[in-house]
Design a protein around this nucleic acid. Structure first.
Lengths: 351, 351
DNA sequence: TCTACTTGATCGCGCTGCCCG
DNA sequence: ACGGGCAGCGCGATCAAGTAG
């Protein structure tokens, strides 16, 4: 049997039926303050007493009441997460890492969603979370640049994957290095002989989409090349398919796509048009979703490390919450180019 | 000593710097109880007074303190979500629907994760959530059958996508009708002339995987057919790829795969072995992930309506929380077979 | 006696429920 | 019909009191 059995014995009371500090104290024959000391791992309790209290805690299945504790300490150890309501791979991939990192650090996660990154919706979301007592906020996978007007909002520790206009020492950006990601993709294509390199961007209202486009353009310029056609999708496979259908086959020999799912749609479209991947068209995705490696044409892509972003976000946020100022306010984590079979040497340009 | 009465006419105080009920009361020139009435929309407040209080609330930017309120009312309007830590499409797809449904109903969502569906981990997770004051729990995307031993756990309103052994009027199952899903897939293949129909299952420790396998087997039996080979993966594209590699090409002309991502891996494997999809092998997936329609061979699959499952789950949970007993304890929502290009008529069996 | 350690009584966090005028 | 006083939810903090060396 379980020695820490959670069996409700007969005596203790509480409106919820859960045992309280006082019940443990009575059971252990000490004062409630002593129980509090033990529960909070304070010093200056005799090992004997501590052990006895611990035994009573286990016997009664006592758990401290978070509301009461929050009321008196003014601390909730809760983090709020604001996400855009969508099942995009990127935003959801880091979610559980976020929760686990928070959990390890002793924080809980309260989730809320917004439709768009307007100041109004963001403000509403943050207030919603403040009412619930969160001590900091992570904004993940939200479209644009964040504007936070009022002082109470600016005072809230906040980590975001999008840049924030508000001047505040309590705001930090943590994200993959999008620019470096598409730069690497372009360089890979260039080294394979491609000179006409298109880009299929995500919705350019999203900061991450804009930054991926910038990386593509910047690298091309550094290479002395003119940017190829620029298309725009909405992250969905369908939009990738539709955008790729509009691409003139003579306009590019390769395309950098802003995420894997649009890349899959694009490959489907190219295939329908009779182009062979990669011989007639090289395609690079972004994200490295799990199925990317197992497409009929395994996808060359830029891998993002979503867990690292999540863990770093939680880490930085907790620093902020606990009053340590951020050392860097913009943290870009590396991406990695994964070369598979959707890119090939371009023989049109034997370089 | 402390003339705490009327110090705060226009200078609100509180440890967090946030205004309290008493500050609003002072500002509006009423008692704090009256402010409480207004904030909680209680009756018996003159419109004039109500308006004045509302004005003060707005002027001070007052938001009620959730911890204090929870402490006294024993209600938090928080729902806990227990999920398995993984970025599987299914579990995450319904997540934001869950949050939005909860939000609409006036509840917040607290997230936690478990590694496996053991009683110990689940009990731990539920306790973690109880401490945080959740009034009900949704268990989503967790592997096996749930065993909840102790009485405090059995008393917690709980909605799950997995069956629960515990006898409790407060536990409800809401999920897609997995059995009907794979049954429909098998029937579709049968109607296309297939007689050798294999199954690539998810990890059979997962209840949903077991139920999908059952549907496959049951339909086959109803059709008077022997079940074809049964393979098992772990939901990942890689596992689908590896499992499909082991399938003897004479053993089946079609395969029902327990999710789309394994189906993609399987298609990749078949393609490598020189089989053409769908001519040499028909493949049916499960889920209808967004990219399924945009594969080079668009995937025939069984669509699950994750938002409906999520919304229904929240609905049922709130019924339970508010003391209305469940009318049904097992709710299965319909799935839909989406026929695309990965299945074709089997000419080996001209039927 | 003094110091170091250990324990307990009392109060109040911000809010709502009860009961009163 | 309307508004206010007061108690107390469960916990941690303060400070005083107790025990041993």
């Amino acid at each position: 049997m379980n020695d820490s059995a959670v069996e409700a014995s007969s005596k203790e009371t509480s409106k919820q039926g859960l045992p309280r500090l006082a019940d443990v104290a009575a059971h252990a024959g000490v004062s409630s303050k002593t129980v509090s000391r033990v529960v909070n791992n304070e010093a200056n309790v005799r090992p004997q007493v501590r052990a006895q209290v611990l035994r009573s805690v286990a016997a009664l299945g006592y758990r401290p009441n978070a509301a009461a504790r929050a009321l008196v300490t003014q601390r909730t150890h809760q983090i709020g997460l604001i996400a855009t309501a969508s099942s995009l791979y990127g935003p959801t991939a880091g979610l559980f890492s976020l929760e686990q990192a928070a959990w390890k650090a002793g924080y809980g996660l309260t989730l809320t969603t917004v439709q768009e990154a307007s100041e109004a919706q963001l403000g509403e979301a943050i207030h919603y979370l403040m009412v619930r007592g969160v001590e900091g906020v992570i904004v993940s996978g939200v479209a644009g640049v964040l504007h936070l007007g009022t002082s109470t909002l600016a005072d809230m520790p906040l980590v975001s994957t999008s840049p924030i206009t508000t001047e505040s020492a309590k705001h930090v950006l943590v994200d993959s290095d999008q620019v470096a990601g598409t730069r690497a993709a372009v360089r890979h294509l260039y080294n394979s002989g491609h000179r006409l390199i298109a880009h299929l961007a995500g919705p350019l209202g999203w900061d991450s989409a804009a930054r991926r486009r910038d990386g593509w353009r910047l690298e091309l310029e550094d290479l002395g090349l003119h940017p190829g056609p620029l298309l725009e999708g909405d992250w969905s496979p369908r939009s990738g398919y539709e955008a790729a259908l509009t691409l003139d086959r003579t306009a590019a020999t390769a395309i950098v796509v802003a995420n894997d799912h649009m890349a899959m749609g694009a490959i489907r479209a190219f295939t329908e048009k009779g182009l062979h991947i990669p011989d007639d068209m090289s395609v690079v995705g972004f994200d490295d979703v799990p199925e990317a490696a197992y497409q009929i044409v395994p996808l060359t892509t830029v891998r993002q490390d979503f867990s690292s972003v999540a863990e770093r976000s939680v880490h930085e946020l907790i620093q902020l919450i606990e009053g340590r100022p951020a050392e860097e306010t913009c943290i870009h984590l590396p991406t990695e180019l994964i070369v598979r079979a959707s890119t090939a040497r371009c023989f049109g340009n034997p370089n």
